[in-house]
């Protein structure tokens, strides 16, 4: 964990209620896809935990949905503004278990961490399929970005306005070696029920500190209590207790 100042390089809307923020700063503590950062915002007491979409060449990319006053404020920040960011939080995905044909499944605000995972897996020579689930076409983002790095992309929308009509589970292929997923809990549960291989799930919870001190985000697992922020957010399929 590191507390450093990041400078906003860009902050723009990329889909309905969805923003991409690129920041410059010390990313040395971000060691795995699926980790998150915790951002201090003027006028808000608690930091905002946001998953890492990508971290390379001294640049940190975050994609966030405007869901409340905090993220609304984030969306209003201009290029050049500085933010205190705690980096290197959470365990992240263990990509060494992927096999040759990993499946990545992201739902809505759960799509961003899939980007860094896809990138690293493709760099390691894996054949990556990404399923991205959204509500409607206006919410879809990063399709080209994923295609550009060499992932096979499948889109689902609940209203059928883009890609397959339905949920991410309606687009799951027959043939994959392992999976990584992040999204709303009902989606995670559906993936859990439908999947036939082992895999890893990234969970979301309201957090106090984000680094394991306050016990604000504890959940039960097969191997005892785990703090989503510190022992997670990624849990393996076999340890999850729904």
């Amino acid at each position: 964990m590191k507390d450093t100042v990041f400078k906003i390089l860009s902050n723009k809307s990329i889909a309905a209620n969805t923003y991409e923020m690129v920041l410059a700063g010390d990313i040395s503590d971000i060691t795995a896809a699926g980790q998150f950062v915790n951002i201090m915002l003027d006028g808000f007491y608690l930091r905002r935990p946001i998953s890492v979409c990508n971290a390379e060449d001294g640049k940190l990319t975050l994609i966030y949905k405007v869901v409340g006053k905090g993220t609304e404020y984030m969306a209003s920040l201009a290029e050049g503004a500085e933010l205190s960011v705690l980096t290197g939080l959470g365990n992240g995905y263990d990509l060494s278990l992927s096999g040759d044909k990993p499946l990545l499944i992201g739902g809505g605000a759960g799509v961003p961490p899939m980007f860094m995972a896809a990138k690293k897996l493709i760099e390691a020579g894996k054949s990556v399929t990404v399923i991205m689930g959204f509500g409607r076409a206006e919410e879809v983002f990063y399709k080209e970005e994923f295609e550009k790095i060499g992932a096979e992309v499948r889109i689902t929308t609940v209203d059928g306005s883009c890609g397959v009509r339905g949920f991410v589970t309606d687009a799951m292929p027959e043939d994959y070696t392992y999976f990584y997923t992040c999204g709303p809990e009902p989606m995670l549960k559906a993936v859990y029920d439908k999947s036939e291989t082992d895999g890893q799930f990234s969970f979301e919870e309201r957090m106090g500190c984000g680094f394991g001190a306050c016990m604000g985000c504890t959940c039960k697992t097969k191997y005892g209590n785990k703090r989503i922020c510190r022992d997670g957010p990624v849990l393996t399929k076999e340890e999850i207790v729904w």
Binding site: F44, Y45, L46, E205, R206, G216, C217, T218
Partner: peptide, 10 residues
């Protein structure tokens, strides 16, 4: 174990 989550509010 403590209370169910959510346990934190701003």
């Amino acid at each position: 174990f403590g209370n169910p989550t959510p346990r934190i509010a701003e």
